[in-house]
Simulated scan of single mutants.
Amino acid sequence: MIVVSVLLLGPSTPGDALVGRPLPAGAAAEVVPNRVMTWNLCNPCEKSNVDRAAEIATYAPQVIGLQEACTGDVKRIRDLLESLYGLVYHVEYGAVLQNWGRCGGVPWSPGGFGQALLSAAPMTDRVLVEYPDGGSEDRGYLAVTTTVDGRRVRVFNTHLAQRQQESVRVGQVRVLAAAVAEYDRAIVIGDFNATPETPELAPMWALAADTDPQCHPQTSGTCDTTTDWYSKFDYVFLRGIASLRHQVHPTAYSDHDLLQADVDLT
């Protein structure tokens, strides 16, 4: 019975409860309409969805892209954001892998694993693309149209192949960049598993700028790091959009920090 319960509930949700922890001083009082964020949840890391929801509620972005996300966890996070903090989000799932070891379920019907997008505004024109070569694990991108800073914009969320798989990421970035190039204005968020100067990211740099205006492929030393191993792997790329403010928020609930971008679409 214990084994069955673990399979059904999933391994990544210990300590989930209906009591949220208080938000820190200075936390956002409501959704910030021009704020977008990206966060790799880390899986399997066995972190509570209550704590994950509190981290997101602290900054209350209009849109947040999650990577290494189980569909069940994302649903619980979305529900907790509403029930504990009054923040109402729409959700789109971008599962590219079915894995009960990561996401629970049962072996013959495992939970979905991949990307997800939470948006305070409705999302339309959802597209989920799995890269032809995911490397050691299936990878892809999720794209939607939604509202940021009062304007409709195309938002992409991706997770590229693991850090040692540079040649695989070359092909993945080509697929992603070709899709992004179709839009004059787009936001591309995610875990690219590559530092700014790596050759495979060149097609993205040709299309868009990082939310940090000091972060360039030629000067990666000025980029804020976003991981526990002090690398810049997480990006908010902006195409045809101005960055007003960016900030990396360290967290105890993942091996990746939250990356915030406040933007101007006007």
Rank of each mutant, 00 (worst) to 15 (best):
I2C: 00
I2L: 10
V4M: 15
V6I: 14
G10D: 04
G10W: 00
G10Q: 01
P14H: 06
G15E: 01
A17R: 14
A17V: 12
P22A: 14
P24E: 10
G26S: 07
V31K: 04
W39V: 06
N40V: 06
L41W: 01
N43P: 00
C45G: 09
K47G: 04
S48M: 05
A57W: 04
L66G: 03
C70H: 06
K75N: 12
I77R: 03
L81A: 08
L84Q: 12
L84Y: 03
L87W: 07
V88T: 15
V88R: 15
H90R: 12
G94M: 05
L97W: 08
R102L: 15
C103M: 07
G104M: 04
G105F: 07
V106L: 12
Q115F: 00
Q115H: 07
L117V: 13
S119I: 02
D125R: 14
R126V: 15
R126N: 05
V127G: 00
V129H: 10
Y131N: 00
P132R: 02
D133T: 07
G135D: 05
S136K: 08
E137T: 12
E137K: 13
A143D: 06
G150D: 14
F156L: 05
T158A: 15
L160Y: 04
Q162M: 15
Q164S: 14
Q165K: 05
Q165C: 00
E166Q: 13
S167Q: 15
S167M: 10
S167V: 11
S167Y: 08
V168W: 03
R169P: 06
R169T: 01
R169S: 01
R169N: 03
V173Y: 06
R174H: 12
A177P: 01
A177M: 07
A181W: 00
D184Y: 03
R185T: 09
I187E: 02
V188Q: 02
I189E: 03
D191V: 03
F192L: 15
N193R: 06
P196A: 10
P199I: 05
P199Q: 10
P199M: 05
P199Y: 02
E200Q: 10
L201H: 01
M204W: 01
W205M: 09
A206K: 08
L207I: 02
Q218G: 13
T219Y: 12
T222Q: 15
C223S: 07
D224V: 07
T225R: 11
T225P: 00
W229D: 14
W229N: 14
Y230F: 11
Y230K: 10
S231K: 12
V236G: 02
V236H: 01
V236C: 03
V236I: 13
R245H: 13
V248W: 10
P250V: 05
A252K: 08
Y253F: 12
H256A: 01
H256L: 03
L259E: 04
L259F: 13
Q260G: 03
D262I: 09
